[in-house]
Design a protein around this nucleic acid. Sequence first.
DNA 1: TATGAATGAGCGTTCATTCAT
DNA 2: GATGAATGAACGCTCATTCAT
Lengths: 190, 190, 190, 190
Amino acid sequence: MTRQHDDSRRMELVRAAARLFRDQGYERTTVRDLGQAVGLQSGSLFYHFRSKEDILVAVMALGIGATTDELEAALAKAASPRDKLATLFRVHLHSLLGENQAALEVMLYEWRSVSDAARPGLVVLRDRYEALWQTVLDEAAAAGLVKTDTRLLRRTWLGSLHWTVQWYRPDGELSVDALAERMLALALVD
Amino acid sequence: MTRQHDDSRRMELVRAAARLFRDQGYERTTVRDLGQAVGLQSGSLFYHFRSKEDILVAVMALGIGATTDELEAALAKAASPRDKLATLFRVHLHSLLGENQAALEVMLYEWRSVSDAARPGLVVLRDRYEALWQTVLDEAAAAGLVKTDTRLLRRTWLGSLHWTVQWYRPDGELSVDALAERMLALALVD
Amino acid sequence: MTRQHDDSRRMELVRAAARLFRDQGYERTTVRDLGQAVGLQSGSLFYHFRSKEDILVAVMALGIGATTDELEAALAKAASPRDKLATLFRVHLHSLLGENQAALEVMLYEWRSVSDAARPGLVVLRDRYEALWQTVLDEAAAAGLVKTDTRLLRRTWLGSLHWTVQWYRPDGELSVDALAERMLALALVD
Amino acid sequence: MTRQHDDSRRMELVRAAARLFRDQGYERTTVRDLGQAVGLQSGSLFYHFRSKEDILVAVMALGIGATTDELEAALAKAASPRDKLATLFRVHLHSLLGENQAALEVMLYEWRSVSDAARPGLVVLRDRYEALWQTVLDEAAAAGLVKTDTRLLRRTWLGSLHWTVQWYRPDGELSVDALAERMLALALVD
DNA sequence: TATGAATGAGCGTTCATTCAT
DNA sequence: GATGAATGAACGCTCATTCAT
């Protein structure tokens, strides 16, 4: 119970931090900004986290971890290789562009602020996510859906998806789901 | 003469700044770092630039401006639509990944540190570059080389190319030219 | 009963504080350090003491008070003026250098952290201790054992003894008793 | 010239710091206190010193270094072993208790705030000073002026002298010179 | 009695920028 | 054109203390 309370505070902070880091950047976000966002004095943050960087790491771990979990769950429900490809696109774009989603974007763009000590742990999480992608792409290649250079394909497609945060506007004509579908259609060999 | 000297000093500084901003990030690079890189005291920089942000803007303008110039020149020499597509990929990757190239990468990843006042000028430069892309893609679509959703295609492909800075290693097996060729092949409908 | 329990907790804390204050200094010791040393959260200390400074005062009072008690008891058993001089040295060095002794050293070196309000109470305790010394020295002077400038002599000898904490090593060749004997021999007119 | 100016600023700061560290203790003295004492903003201190601890080390090095220099010069003028002993006492007390003298006292009482990295350098300086003492004491022992246990004698006497800062009042009846003479008389075997 | 969480003031330090020389 | 010195605001973080539970 106590643990739960503690965790909920931490989670609240991590989510607020994700938004601030995404909008202003990690370096430009002060611990006073973070405190204000959750109704705490800046010093009080350090009861929950050892350092500002620890908050960044928690945000990034959440970003990639939650996305991996969702992807795994969604893939389990996908029937065909083509469905699985669609799942890759859909889950990724929802995690990047969906409402209350900010952590994955931070994960993508704030690597430079992660210390050498914290990097390996995050790399493991990232690799786990990319391994899911790789598996699906390899199956798709075996099914003749995509070309066989799946490693480069993975990097290419992920790059395309990552970049959407720079231009996609949620108030535009295109829903996230529709965007995912169109990007997949564009990417696939007919 | 004075002007020339001044400009060469400025250029030297911009190039050094590009490398530092790319490697450490704009926020993490101090004006003392910049001064040291060109053998100047930090205070002396402010004779050449009004502020640190002005240096960033100069770097970004150089990054996109020089790339645009190169692309224009290279496209003029390209014969077929397919050649022109190859030119898009080749020039872009050289500007991102080539030796002594850092400014375009800064352009891509440091938008958040550009003030509202400076942004429009850079947006104009970026739009000019993307207009070149758009023209070439439209011609390719007309020739049946690519699908017709060329606006989304432009964003998709540019995203793929931008992301290469995160994983490409110049000491690996793949040259920049070879990478450009393979990425194009992967992107094209056969 | 409650009182007893309370006191034992307090004593445990004072002893732990004495060691920490001696080893790290009062200012560099945090209440979290103190809490950890006795298995308490830092906030819980404030049930036993009103402030961190109160703990310091308790340590210092213990340091000088216990030493005074021991000196009184030991002097009562000493026969000759020369024996009494030896007792001064022996008790003082044991209190400073003996095992589990830290409080007197804190008393000597942390005056600067005692507030004006708390100082008089400690000065009284210190004066009581020094009065014992003065009496013994005056008797020794009357017996022709030491020179007659006993006030300066007291300060001189106490200074010598206090300084031992800076250089004496318990794992060296000299026991505390032996050191006391040698220092007395050195100090006495033959 | 520039160097001289720089040094004079540093010196001014070191002297002011010596007084503040002596009066309030190193830990209780803030960099804002230090800045105010020399008419500088707190941040400006860091143009002259890399850290607050560096200032402490400079104070301590000044305290022991200047005293060593003075002692060397004064010993060169002393004729007899007895004169040299008097010189030891006189120079030490002047350095501790004289006007505008604070650095040596800081040296004695702030060791705990010196980092492991800085300590060896200061120990070398201290050893140099104590070596001067040792030489003089050995000569005095050879001349039959003092007992032969000169290593313990050195520590004993230095302890006595160090302790004077705790009780000597410059506005009292005793001048520093007179105190030195009386302490020596008390310490010497007739 | 003790805890977990929070406060709020203050700390040492950084850094873009200024300016007299 | 360039420097050395200084500014001043802000930064991440610490810590004695408080208090509802």
